[in-house]
Design a binder for these strands. Structure first.
Lengths: 209, 209
DNA sequence: GCGATTTATCACCGGCCGGTGACATGTCAA
DNA sequence: TTGACATGTCACCGGCCGGTGATAAATCGC
């Protein structure tokens, strides 16, 4: 929102520090204003330095986006991790995945903006960004799945995609307009309702065949 | 994509025709380029007339968007209508709703763009646009529901929102990048898979309690 | 035929954008 | 001390944007 440059003596002459400032500014701009406001000028203003440095140190916006993607790669995995009891059934596995994905996405405006970016302006650049999320989820599933397998005769990939898609759409809509299709998505109670419905769905599909 | 003005003798002096041209051009621009490319200059170029006319006849972009919203209000209702047998159970009702919403949204890039617009840049303007869709679905449900009611002890609004949200996210992702979370969303076979999964979900929740 | 009105076009403004070349200043090594 | 290099700033370019005032041309009422 505000464009006041963050405090930063303009003569720091510390490249590592400057790069970190630029990267942080880029994340803030993207998280706050979305991809529409994401540009060289905005990031430089936010970082309190000249935009030329973005070209010099990151090779332009593309390199900056890639840099964001790098430390974003581990985001989802970190978020999905927990010390809870490992799932004992496939239903529990999917249930944990859905609930944690909901919480993680809801808490991270940056990733929300990236997801919207992907929908609104698909490009190889942002595709690379979004790919990290997908592979992270895959790896998490592979790691915590153990020997768990979906029930026979069930199109698990389709169901899981449905569930994750529902969660993502609701989180994005909730952040943007506070409701979806008449369902309020603001208070924690609203989200508890969504969680309950999602859990019921998972169990209806996987637990009882 | 291309900016060549549509054939149109520049001296037609037919206000009704010109207004229709502008409105059509606006819909095309929005459907093709999304809200990012939606502006006075782009619409005027596409309509093959001067942008001043947009201000004169529609009062600027806002009025133009409202005009789009007007004839868009009946869109969903028209799409949802059909001569199929009326649903006999609540499960059938929701099943029809979900499947028809999927088909309608998939076939209409304009509405897809509006949905994305709502996520990326919420504003009273586009909210008015998107509200039409919501009320249209409400009215359709009220009209075809008859005496059907959801089973006891089921949070029907939450489940329905989940299902519609899943469909919407998958359609948007399919149009943008052709897949979601590893699930391909391009061929008709891909979508048949999604439909089957959605139907199974609906029945698991409503039919068998 | 003629003036008034409608319809449409054009030229222009300020502002922001991405991008680049020239320049200033601090740092460090020879 | 001096010269090369790293770091940072500034000024400028062309292009597109939304928005507006003046002007031309066709139509209509009289």
């Amino acid at each position: 929102m505000s464009d006041e440059p963050t405090a930063r003596d303009s003569r720091s002459r510390d490249r590592a520090r400057t790069e970190a400032d630029i990267l942080a500014a880029a994340r803030v701009v993207l998280a706050e204003d979305g991809f529409q406001g994401f540009g060289v000028n905005a990031v430089a203003r936010r970082a309190g330095c000249d935009k030329q440095l973005i070209y010099r140190y990151f090779g332009g916006l593309d390199g900056l986006v890639d840099a964001i993607g790098l430390d974003l790669a581990g985001w989802l995995e970190r978020e999905l991790l927990s010390e809870d009891a490992p799932p004992r059934t496939y239903a529990e596995l999917v249930e944990q995945l859905v609930l944690r994905f909901l919480a993680a996405l809801r808490a991270d405006p940056l990733v929300q903006r990236i997801a919207i970016w992907e929908l609104a302006a698909p490009s190889p650049l942002v595709a690379r960004l979004a790919a990290a999320r997908g592979t992270a989820m895959m790896r998490w599933v592979a790691k915590t799945r153990g020997a768990l397998t979906p029930p026979e005769g069930v199109d698990a990939p389709a169901f899981n995609a449905l569930l994750i898609a529902a969660v993502q759409q609701l989180v994005l809509a909730g952040a943007a307009v506070g409701s979806f299709s008449g369902l309020p998505l603001q208070s924690d109670a609203d989200w508890a309702r969504v969680q309950a419905a999602a859990v019921t769905l998972v169990r209806a599909v996987y637990s009882e065949g």
